[in-house]
Nucleic acid binder design. Sequence first.
DNA 1: CCGATGCTTCGATGAGCAACGAAGTATACT
DNA 2: AGTATACTTCGTTGCTCATCGAAGCATCGG
Lengths: 223, 223
Amino acid sequence: MEPDIASLAAMIADPSRAKMLTALLSGKALTATELALEADITAQTASNHLAKLLEKELLVVRKQGRHKYFQLAGEHIARLLENLMVLNHNITSIKTGPNDPSLKVSRVCYDHMAGEIAVALYAALLKQEIIIDKVDHCTLSPAGERFFITLGADFTTIKATTRPVCRPCLDWSERRSHLAGTLGQWILNDALHKGWAERDLVTRAIHFSPRGKRAFFNCYAIV
Amino acid sequence: MEPDIASLAAMIADPSRAKMLTALLSGKALTATELALEADITAQTASNHLAKLLEKELLVVRKQGRHKYFQLAGEHIARLLENLMVLNHNITSIKTGPNDPSLKVSRVCYDHMAGEIAVALYAALLKQEIIIDKVDHCTLSPAGERFFITLGADFTTIKATTRPVCRPCLDWSERRSHLAGTLGQWILNDALHKGWAERDLVTRAIHFSPRGKRAFFNCYAIV
DNA sequence: CCGATGCTTCGATGAGCAACGAAGTATACT
DNA sequence: AGTATACTTCGTTGCTCATCGAAGCATCGG
């Protein structure tokens, strides 16, 4: 028979679990109590939910002393969640984008950047033909690879995984593509590493310093 | 705040609704009673579910006399459902593929082909460089377009929509890509039109005649 | 060791909601 | 018109499951 999509969807259908999952979209590993706080429930119920999410393999866990660090089981789960956001966003809301303005400008999407700046970056990379776009996918051009090497990117590690290097990821606030994949990951890490931006300690927001933003825009020729 | 993915997921989380939705993955428009039968529930409860699915815009409806024909609201919904299938499939079952052997061989996925044959077709198109694959996307090569024109394809209509012409769609039984998009749609319609295959009247299965299968394999050089 | 912290198990409570029977509305067939 | 068919509305029932309090286990810090 057809596979059982209901039980998987049910994992996301509970509001508390949904809150936990979206919190984990930050890519950070969070402890059980942090997730309980995030979802506004007690530790007991959170424990219950987390057990279910583990059983269905939406999450993985790493035990460290008396803490348990939970993470999304992989990019595929993150993609599913973002997919749901895009669909639901298109459906329910007139007002576009998140209410929190800093989330709208720049935020983390699993392990890469999303939001206005990320969408502008994607457009800039396209314009310079660093990446080549084909409706719903993209590739890195040879010139693009050279460009990133001059920035200090190490393509032996970027290409080491089975994950694609470039992947367009639909931005639920902008409804346009931004860059995911290992290269998207590298760009975020690089910007953080160079001190151009910092991750918010509680939300998914990414805060650029004024200088950092100028440097970032200059580096990638974002207009 | 973050968008509300829970309520959308809840639509799919109910087993009866999930059955209806998977039935509609056939791409066919089904009436309320047909869907009630499919989900093994009475007409009243089905009516209830369908109202919810309409409200959340997972379905669209066309009224025709005393019948109401329901369809998926678009390819985006179909993709979401197939995504869920892939994930759930990878997670829960050891045995790969559907139990029904004819579904495993060939079935409809919204408006294109899926299953063993469709996966073999995708591989054959790749090998002949009719389509160019890049991990998670693909494009039609110029030679490929000429090839399909000799088969009688009309690219003015194929390219008329905003939908991509080629799109890889992960096959939940084979765990490999098959071809979606308007070209995937054309291939299915063409095969049906030429009498190589017929759609099952009740399930999503596609039945190739022995001659039809030979002709299909020969046409696309499937090995 | 002992208290504090993080997480889990158990049992009870309660709310949400899927399900259906019964009755109502709309359309079609003759 | 009159009956059958398709779908909807209403009210009731009953089950599932999220929630939390209480108590338990594990780990850390002194």
